[in-house]
Simulated assay, not measured.
Amino acid sequence: MGVMLFKWCLPALMAAVHPFYMSVTEIRYNNPQKTLEISVRIFSDDLENVLKKESKQPLDIIHPKNRAAADSLVAQYLRRHLSLQADGKPLQIRYLGYEISEDATWCFLECAPLAPFKKLDLRNDVLYAEHDTQSHMIHVIVNGRRQSTKLDNPSPSATFNF
Rank of each mutant, 00 (worst) to 15 (best):
F20S: 10
H63M: 05
M137G: 09
R41D: 09
C9W: 13
I62N: 11
S148K: 14
L91G: 06
I27D: 03
A12L: 14
R94M: 10
V140H: 01
L73Q: 02
L109K: 01
M22T: 11
D87T: 04
Y77M: 07
L59T: 02
D60T: 02
V24A: 12
V24H: 06
L127R: 03
L51I: 05
S135E: 09
R80E: 13
E102L: 12
R94C: 12
I62F: 00
R28V: 15
I93T: 09
H18A: 11
R94D: 12
T159V: 15
F43Q: 11
Y98S: 08
Y77P: 06
A70P: 05
A15W: 01
I93Y: 05
D125M: 08
I61Q: 02
M22W: 08
L114K: 04
A70F: 01
R41S: 11
N30F: 03
I62S: 11
P90W: 07
F162M: 08
E130I: 02
D71G: 03
Q92N: 14
E54Q: 14
A70R: 05
S135A: 15
S135T: 14
R41I: 04
N153G: 00
P58I: 06
L36Y: 06
P113T: 01
A158F: 03
L10Q: 11
N66D: 15
K52S: 12
E26R: 07
A69L: 13
K53M: 10
P58Q: 11
Q57T: 13
Q76G: 11
S101A: 14
L114E: 04
Q57A: 13
H81E: 08
Y77Q: 05
L59D: 06
N66P: 02
Q134C: 09
D103L: 14
I27A: 06
I141R: 10
P32E: 03
L10S: 07
H131K: 15
L91P: 02
T25G: 11
T159W: 09
Y95S: 03
P64V: 01
V126C: 08
D46E: 10
L114F: 02
H18S: 14
E130S: 15
L109P: 05
G97V: 01
G144M: 09
M22V: 15
H136L: 08
P113V: 01
F6K: 13
T149R: 09
R79N: 13
Q33K: 11
H18T: 12
L5K: 13
K150H: 10
V17N: 10
I27K: 03
Y128K: 04
A112C: 07
L5C: 07
I38A: 03
A112R: 01
S39P: 02
F108G: 04
F43G: 05
A86Q: 05
E48V: 01
R41C: 09
